[in-house]
Design a binder for these strands. Structure first.
Lengths: 357, 357
DNA sequence: GTGAAAGCGCTAACAC
DNA sequence: GTGTTAGCGCTTTCAC
């Protein structure tokens, strides 16, 4: 054991002149209850520090039947919402002393199942499933393996679920869009149109319900031809919007995008339009993006409460109340364009004395 | 073993009426070389499928001395560049049959070291370290543990590194900004200013060097007072920009932002300015964001080659040539504003016959 | 206060 | 072609 690389507790024990079981107790914090002298404990800890000794978590996990891992599945890393969710997840996992495992599944059913199997093989203690296309297929795997889990964003029937209060959020946003846009009576453009998302999917249908609530409150209805659920690919959104506009003969009175990705795709089309045309439409997006606050035209947004969603998810994992199939809704925040920025307008002043270099 | 939950290969073996080692060989693919009959193999595979059996990777990892895990550290998930990098990482890890482990370290030195220790404890086979504030401290841990690793984005001395070709990219961008902006001779505003990043940090200094190259080519120099390295927090960028403008008496001729995050912060300030003022300045960002293509004002961008960076990183991990301290540069792409979008402009036409609903 | 020893679930060398 | 067996590095009961 004279190499500088003590790689097992046995080697470390030998260096310290004590037994492996004592070292083990010291390194995993159970030494107090074993009444090991503070002196030996310190000596071993110093030694471990010096050799940068890292306990083998595979071995300890195997023995203790606890991996210390917690998993999260997301559709993609390239999305602000899921990025923020990952960050909140990591923070809370860390707080509980668990090692977070974030994996993306690209909204692919087969990959979702494959991934959950892999996570189970590594014996994750819990799993948070976000935006799954088939949450119940994922749940089936978890249930078989006895892994406690929660759905976030998109709910399922076989596990507790936490979602954004889509209906409320969409209704608020739609009301705002109506208030900020002018009727275009007589033209084919006097409509609020919904773009993006997937028909039949929970979040989409809830958001549509919210839009209907808002329209009903204004004595209007949502016609089928004003619903363009083209999925979550940016290019599909661009195309759907182009078709819509050529059908209507211009932009509708208001556009509500189902997600940040949808807005992103729509911008490819909108970016090419002259300001005069853009001014005829009120834009809203169910998802928030800092850049969208500074576009050429106003976009109102709904910002999901990421920390709130994760907090509820962890509560569900702790077994606090929620049962399979139950859904907790977390209210998002309406970010009206121009309202919160409050950036002090810079007023050109006579050149002040230059600050000393 | 009459519960429906076979959780070890022993239970599965009993169900199949054969030995555990045979089951093991069948499940991990080594059965061909053990000349196990295709028949038994099929039988066991079917059984495993039926019971959704998942081999315990902690145990197999322990035994084989191979965890099957590969780690990646990133500063944050809430960033388009690192999000894209994570996605590319996952794809390539998956391709090699490794389970990807992405963890964020919030540009915090202590957290970086803590995290790498944790990953080593789980016995990751390799590690990709991106945007680390102290890559060499991370390397020290890896070297001690014998974990092969690469730095990406920010290089280190103790491991091979892969970075964006910052100097080239920044020079191209700066040249474009000069070409797209008008001199403001005689005023204090006739300057290209650099905002964001950290003085002394590799990427920042390289980008500054690129800017100097471009300026030199135009017979100009970069004055210290036009360099505002305020770190990577959006709010700091907003503030730095506000101070700069009140010092100069307006926006400078051109602004080059060190990162997407910096641009994001700057927008909080720029968003409050009237169009006339914005028109006096050319904007550029070293990082790409789809939203930024549709702002009220033109922003030119440098888009890093994420797939290329990861491909080089994996090559380095495979031990292909690179030595500790060596740096490979991957050339990014210049995205000039207005150039690539090519979104067909919608021309308002007489309302066409409505598509059948 | 500390050590010896069994076993977590798997793999691989060896035996037949 | 398949089974037996000895660990991988750790934790934990029990013994002293």
């Amino acid at each position: 054991m004279n190499r500088s690389h003590a790689s097992t507790i046995y080697e470390l024990a030998e260096l310290a002149g004590i037994s492996a079981s004592t070292v083990s107790a010291i390194l995993n914090g159970s030494w107090q209850s074993r009444r090991i002298s503070a002196q030996t404990a310190q000596r071993v800890q110093a030694l471990a520090q010096e050799y940068r000794f890292a306990v083998n978590r595979q071995a300890s996990g195997l023995r203790r039947q606890r991996s210390g891992l917690i998993g999260m599945m997301i559709p993609t890393h390239e999305d602000r919402f899921f990025g923020a969710l990952s960050q909140a997840f990591e923070r809370q996992a860390h707080q509980r002393g668990l090692c977070p495992l974030v994996v993306s599944t690209l909204r692919d059913e087969a990959l979702e199942v494959e991934t959950v199997r892999s996570l189970i093989a590594y014996r994750v203690e819990h799993l948070i499933v976000t935006g799954a296309t088939r949450p119940d297929a994922v749940s089936a795997e978890c249930l078989q393996a006895g892994v406690r889990h929660v759905n976030v964003d998109l709910p399922g029937k076989k596990a507790p679920s936490v979602t954004s209060d889509n209906r409320w959020g969409a209704a608020e946003l739609a009301r705002l869009l109506l208030a900020r846009s002018a009727p275009a009576a007589g033209t084919g453009r006097d409509a609020l149109c919904f773009v993006g998302g997937i028909r039949g999917e929970f979040a989409t249908e809830q958001r549509l319900a919210g839009v209907r609530d808002a329209l009903a409150g204004a004595g209007k209805a949502l016609a089928e031809e004003h619903i363009l659920c083209c999925g979550y690919a940016p290019e599909a959104a661009r195309q759907a919007l182009a078709v819509l506009c050529s059908r209507l003969g211009g932009l509708p009175r208001a556009l509500l995008f189902a997600s940040g990705i949808t807005l992103q795709g729509a911008l490819r089309f909108l970016g090419g339009l002259p300001d005069a045309q853009l001014a005829q439409c009120a834009f809203g997006s169910y998802d928030w993006d800092p850049y969208a606050e500074c576009l050429r035209f106003p976009v109102h947004m709904v910002r999901q409460n990421v920390e709130g969603l994760m907090a509820e998810a962890f509560r569900a994992i702790d077994g606090e109340g929620l049962r399979a199939g139950q859904v907790v809704q977390v209210r998002p925040q309406l970010v009206a364009w121009g309202a919160p920025a409050a950036a002090p307008i810079f007023s050109p002043a006579p050149l002040p004395a230059p600050a000393t270099p």
